[in-house]
Each structure stands twice: as C-alpha cells, then as structure tokens.
Design a protein around this nucleic acid. Structure first.
Lengths: 246, 246
DNA sequence: TAGTGGTCTAGACCACAGT
DNA sequence: CTGTGGTCTAGACCACTAC
C-alpha cells in the first residue's frame, strides 16, 4: 500500500538531517518516483529506515507539508498532494523570480535620491516623521519588455545603493550582500488603472489595468528595512502562491 | 532587558499546551504588553517559568514566527516584529474574510448546474476529460455593494450545493460542514479589464480594472476538491498576506 | 482492535552572535 | 567567553481513523 522512500542521509554533512531528508523526498516527487496520492510509510518506520529519531523525521515531513507538497491526516497517514503547487516558500524579489523563470531581467534606475519621508512612509518604516530616507524608482524589464515600475523607500545608511549596483542585481540581493537578513514581510496585492505616466513607462494605454503590490519588509531584528509600492503589467506578471492550513 | 511574559497553561484543557502559550503571547502583543522590538526571555527560561519542556516552548514560539509576529536570531534572541502584520494563516474564504472585517457579506447564486468538464477544469480537478462537475456562479456583495463574481467547479457528490445553502454561508463553510477538510491551495492573483458582462454585474465600466484570482484547493487526502476563478472590484477588495522566510 | 499522526518530556551537543 | 537559538535523541501517552 505504501510507496517506498529511498533516502540516505550523510551525518558528516553540515546540512541538517531533516533538511537532507526533505530535499530528497521532494526530489523523488519531482522525478515522479512518488506519484500524486501516493501514501508514505508511517513516521516511525521511515525514521527507523533512515536511522533517525521520529522527531527529526517529523520535522522533515512538516517542512514538506508547509511547502504544500504533502498532506497528513491523523489515523490515516501521509500522502503526496495531487497536482503541483508553487513550491516557493521564500521571501522572493521580483528580480530573483524572473531569473528563476528564465526571463532575463534588466533594470533601469529612474531615480535614487535621499528625501524626507512623507507621513505614510515614515509610519511604514518606523522612522520619525520627516526623517531622511532613500527613495528608489526603477523600471524592470523582462526579455526587454517593460514589466513593472518599482518604487522603494529605505532607511538611510543600510547599503550603498548606487544605480550601477541596482542595475546589476535585485534590491534584495544587494541588501543580503551587506548582511541584512530579510525575515518577514506584510504585503497587499490589488489592482487599479494606469496613470498617464505609468502608461508611458510601461507602454500601456492610460487607464489600462495594472496589478499593484505594496510591501513592508522586516529583518531578523524585527526592524522595517524596506517599503515598496510596485505596479505590474498583468499580461506579463502575476502572483502565485501556496496556502497551507495549519 | 527582556520583557516578562506572564502566561499560565491549563493542563486539564484539551487545547495543546503549545497553542495555549502561543495564543496568550499573541494576546499580550495585541494588548500592547509586549511592544514591537521587545525581546523575550530565552527559550529555556520561558519553558521553566511555565513548567513546560523546551521543545513545547519552541513549538509555541515557532507558531508565532510562522505567523509573522516574532523573529528569532541565533545567538541573539527572540523579538516582537515592528509594525503589524496580517495574522491570517488560514486558508480563508472570501465569505469568512468579509465576516471578520464586519462587511456583512451576502450572496446571489447566478447559476448552479452540473456540466461536463472542459479540458482545463478536468485537469485542475484531476477528473477524466468530460466528467460531470458542478459549476457555480455567484455574485458576492459586501454591505449591499457588488464586490466579486465567483465561479467555482467541484467534483459531483461532494456536498449538496443548493442555492439556498450557498446564499446562507460560504462555499468553504459548506464543504467543512459535510466533513471535507481543506488543507492546501495553490493560487494565482492577477488583473485584467472587465468584460461587458462583468462590468454589468459589478456596476463597473467595461474595461475597468479587475483583480483576479484562480485557486485549486485540496483536502487532507491530497485530492482536488475545488477550482475557482474569481474577479474582484479592486476599490473594494485586495489580498493581504504575511510572508515569512524559513 | 490496530495503526496512524499529534503532543509532550528531559535531556544532549552544536553553531553563531556579542562581549 | 557566555548566552542564544538550531538540531537531535529515545522514549511516552493520547486522539483519531478505519476495519
């Protein structure tokens, strides 16, 4: 009844055991060795087979459940979800998203200046009203087609945000490179009509539907490090995600 | 340096200990007893104070980290995130979302019929091509204003989806009531212009921007139980969510 | 009744951050 | 160096499902 799971862990590796197991099970699903609906053996048996304790095995399975690849039912067992779900669990930037989809992103920096924060920006970044913040405006292309207008505000002094660097890599990669660990974000996705300026930049018509996203991102100290307000051309971009009931 | 956490657990309660702890810490954050940026005591001390083991305490903290309320940094400690994030971790239906926001949702069922599945619906629901499926079309109002057109397809025989029931409660609540446990969903959010029919139903202009969402939902056996294609008026609705880096 | 995942304990050692 | 979270073990009992 149960599908065999053939996984071996390397105890000398610095990679956590639960993560090794999770990666290998995910690879088996990708390769079709574990088909949708397949039932895995129970946690105790799996743990024994791999020479792990049950909590470690559970951690591996829980990781894949959170990722939307497996479902568990008490008294029944663990099964592979039918159909593929978006595996992305990361706090990803548009730049990395496009790279992953082989979309060859390029960026034009429209402006990168230091300005006093307006009230709403100050609140979002938890800065005193009127504090100086960095304001970025970029135009992001995918395969040489204009895709999105990205407006961002950051506290000053976080990183050296020169236009050259911003055109070579994404903002998130740049922040990570200077030791900022992005951890949590709160975002809102909506839609509205393009303004004249947006339409011009994105080669759309004024009033054309645009997808919008505003996001505040916090680092591993819980401080707000970035506020973004982006508009996307809906024919070229949409947001995909997995939801998991806890 | 550390903020005190005053929590007591009831060991006779059927509610898991880690969940009792998590709920009480969340309540303290809501009441402002734990301010943004406040550092909690370390896991071992917290566990001792509450008479719990460290793994149980960790599980409580991890729950709140996943919810976007806390951040942890190795070697440093656990802190409350600055700014408020969307707490919602559930696989929520629009109906419940509106209820929670005191928006008084009402529903008009436009059609509820059994039809042969088109190819894309059959694929999404993992049914054989042409299999009979239930097709629903509903118009959802909030405070008597038209808010969204909801199209859904489901395998037949799941539940008795009469218009009367669908107008009294949300589809998800109806499914849960007949024992379907929704577990995982994969969704895509985009935007496009309103068609003439959509514009009429939603009292918008033809070509007005609409927010779109398509979603496939799976139950705790990993089977697809619902495919939905919805359009929303962006002035009245947007999607809000927390993202957590793992 | 048998088998499953859900919860919980009481330890241990390690990796990393800040001093 | 000390203190923190990250990982891991080897058990235990319980709740729920299916037969």
């Amino acid at each position: 009844m149960s599908s065999p799971v053939n996984v071996a862990v390397d105890r000398r590796s610095p990679v956590p055991l639960y993560f090794q197991v999770a990666q290998q099970i995910e690879a088996m699903i990708d390769r079709g060795e574990l088909l949708p609906g397949a039932r895995l053996e129970n946690e105790v048996v799996l743990a024994d087979q791999m020479g792990l304790s049950r909590p470690t095995m559970r951690q591996a399975i829980q990781y894949l459940v959170d990722k939307g690849l497996l479902v568990r039912k008490r008294g029944v067992g663990t099964q592979v979800v039918h159909g593929q779900v978006k595996r992305n669990v990361e706090l990803s930037s548009l730049h990395d998203d496009l790279l992953r989809a082989n979309q060859y992103p390029t960026t034009k920096v429209i402006s990168a200046t230091v300005v006093p924060a307006t009230d709403d920006i100050a609140v979002a970044l938890h800065q005193p009203p009127g504090a100086e913040v960095v304001r970025l405006e970029r135009l992001r292309y995918a395969n040489d087609q204009p895709l999105a207008i990205l407006q961002n505000w950051l506290p000053t002094g976080l990183a050296d945000l020169t236009p050259e660097r911003l055109e070579r890599q994404g903002l998130y990669a740049l922040l990570r490179a200077v030791g900022v660990t992005l951890r949590v974000a709160s975002q809102r996705i909506g839609a509205r009509a393009a303004t004249g300026r947006e339409a011009t930049l994105l080669t759309e018509r004024r009033g054309a539907p645009l997808l919008t996203m505003v996001r505040t991102t916090y680092d591993d100290s819980g401080r707000a490090v970035e506020y973004g307000s982006h508009v996307y051309r809906p024919a070229l971009y949409s947001f995909e995600m997995a939801l998991v009931e806890r």
